[in-house]
């Protein structure tokens, strides 16, 4: 550590330049990472909601509803259809409005409609199913979320492509800046490097102080970025909470593991920290390795 601090004291401007370059890149990368994970979480959430919800008129009998359900299930276009009775609808309503007694007093189970929550086998079947339902008798309203999913999919795709371009640009720029800074540091230590070579030091021994410094800056910048980002996240958390008030949780399914991202979990926080740290250390060490490989012969 003493060696690293001495090196920082000897080249303060280069050290600050290294820190701030890494800080900026890691901060923006972490922000993009959060935006992407939340968008994917939202997409997963919307996809897990009923894709078509059909509300029946209050006088429609349960028998008719069940007949329609059977008809839908036998069509081979519907994956599942869940019946929500008036009583169940009232229970859901009560749960959602438990903090508002006035709204609870105004509504009874009689006035809430029964509904069917339908999942299609393919999103392309959704308009067809919706059209079929609209033509049936006893139907009050048909909602289907294809547009929302499509919009979210296209937004996620745009953000993902922009992020890739952004990451590529930032990684290349950061590496070039860090290589230049390391080159400058190598030039400042030219006499010492020449002497070490004459004394019989191997290449790794000569590169080691530069790599140690790179590791230090990679770790330091990623930790500072994570701390500042966490503080900012807690500032915007109440706004996010009110925005996502109806959403019980957001998660990303990796197949082998389902990572819950909202409400904020320890796993997601740890994963974000780990990714930021690894990215910071990788970018810092990789640039230093490239610079030392090129300039220390």
């Amino acid at each position: 550590m003493r060696e690293i601090f001495t090196a920082i004291k000897r080249t303060p401007y280069q050290s600050f330049a290294t820190f701030f370059t890494l800080f900026l890149t890691l901060f923006l990368s972490l922000a993009v990472f959060f935006i992407l994970t939340f968008l994917y979480g939202m997409l997963g959430y919307v996809e897990s909601r009923p894709q078509v919800t059909v509300y029946f008129q209050t006088q429609t009998s349960e028998n008719n509803i069940f007949k329609l359900k059977e008809q839908l299930l036998s069509s081979e276009k519907v994956l599942s259809a869940k019946y929500v009775s008036k009583t169940e609808a009232y229970e859901i309503y009560k749960k959602l409005n438990k903090d508002n007694p006035l709204l609870l007093e105004m509504v009874t189970s009689d006035i809430l409609p029964a509904s069917l929550e339908i999942f299609a086998k393919k999103p392309s079947f959704l308009p067809e199913i919706a059209d079929f339902l609209k033509k049936q008798s006893g139907i009050d309203e048909v909602n289907f979320q294809k547009n929302i999913i499509d919009k979210l999919l296209s937004l996620t795709s745009i953000v993902r492509k922009t992020s890739i371009a952004f990451f590529a640009y930032f990684i290349i720029t950061t590496i070039i800046i860090l290589i230049s800074i390391t080159h400058f540091k190598i030039a400042l230590k030219k006499d010492e490097i020449e002497l070490l070579q004459l004394l019989g030091a191997d290449r790794f021994y000569i590169k080691k102080p530069f790599l140690k410094e790179a590791l230090f800056f990679g770790l330091l910048s990623s930790m500072v970025v994570f701390l500042i980002f966490s503080a900012l996240f807690f500032v915007v958390r109440p706004y996010l909470q009110s925005y996502l008030s109806g959403v019980s949780n957001l998660s990303i399914d990796f197949g082998f593991y389902n990572l819950v991202i909202w409400p904020l979990t320890l796993e997601f926080t740890a994963a974000s920290f780990l990714i930021t740290t690894l990215f910071g250390v990788f970018i810092s060490i990789a640039s230093t390795l490239l610079a030392t490989q090129k300039y220390i012969k």
Binding site: Q197, L198, L199, G200, A201, D202
Partner: peptide, 11 residues
Amino acid sequence: HTEKLRRNIGF
């Protein structure tokens, strides 16, 4: 083995 050679030579 330049490094090893130089470790045996003082300059």
